[in-house]
Design a protein around this nucleic acid. Sequence first.
DNA 1: TAATAACCTACCAAATTAGTCAACTATCTA
DNA 2: TAGATAGTTGACTAATTTGGTAGGTTATTA
Lengths: 140, 140
Amino acid sequence: MRITSRGRYAVLAMVDLAKFGSQKPCSLSHVSIRQNISLSYLEQIFNDLKKAELVKSQKGPGGGYILNKDKDKIKILDIFNAIDEKIKTTGCGNNPNAFCSGTNKKCLTHNFWENLEGVIGNYLSTVHLSDLVEEQTLVK
Amino acid sequence: MRITSRGRYAVLAMVDLAKFGSQKPCSLSHVSIRQNISLSYLEQIFNDLKKAELVKSQKGPGGGYILNKDKDKIKILDIFNAIDEKIKTTGCGNNPNAFCSGTNKKCLTHNFWENLEGVIGNYLSTVHLSDLVEEQTLVK
DNA sequence: TAATAACCTACCAAATTAGTCAACTATCTA
DNA sequence: TAGATAGTTGACTAATTTGGTAGGTTATTA
């Protein structure tokens, strides 16, 4: 039960952007330095965030990325979805037509895993980017 | 955010055992067939479950594995812990002395990830093996 | 027009996962 | 007591995922 670095970086970078790029564009090289994340890797991640319309980009000098919505309108779950960080605990991938573990029916634990996904998804829907920007002052 | 097959199999196999092996030993070859899990892989998993004293083993004909506790005393979290299926969302591994992402302090999102771990761990503590054994009659 | 910064594509190495295979040991039963 | 059953252990491996790197192209603006 773990999250990928990609997911962790995406959330971290978005919090950074909410702090430093809510008014004017903020370059990824700055995010890269502040948060210690590889620039090329950030570029890949922001490609996806842009497709999901969570951020806008501006090329050229003085350009960079800027939030496309209010930070209290962006859920952490939105970020997960944007970069395809799946909440996936079932074996069948939640496809209603698929069956678990190669058998001809849902496995004994299917409902349990779906419930767990619900618990996680629900939490990620309640937390917004703005919550993390404010909270970080509490972090040592 | 996903779980490994190992974790999924462990829970599934324990539910199977709770159904078929709460009175007398149940061989892994039977679990293997019923749940469509590789026997050798199950053996590795049950090795860990045994070390954690969630199951007992009995060699020889008529032997197999049997639950070592009441099924309503075994939390899903216990199974996760037994097979070392970690709930790990932070980058620093929750080591209080470690820092996130190579920096000299906790990252902006550290508290958020710890809270998420709490939400998941809490849910896994509330569900017991007995809940899944009963629930499966509802599964199509 | 030079510098900046996003954009795009290909490639790669390490780690993890999900097993397989083979040999061995203990125990029960016929 | 022989043989079948069933757990135990360790080595190995193929496939996938992860976490990048490298290099170039395009757009913008000072």
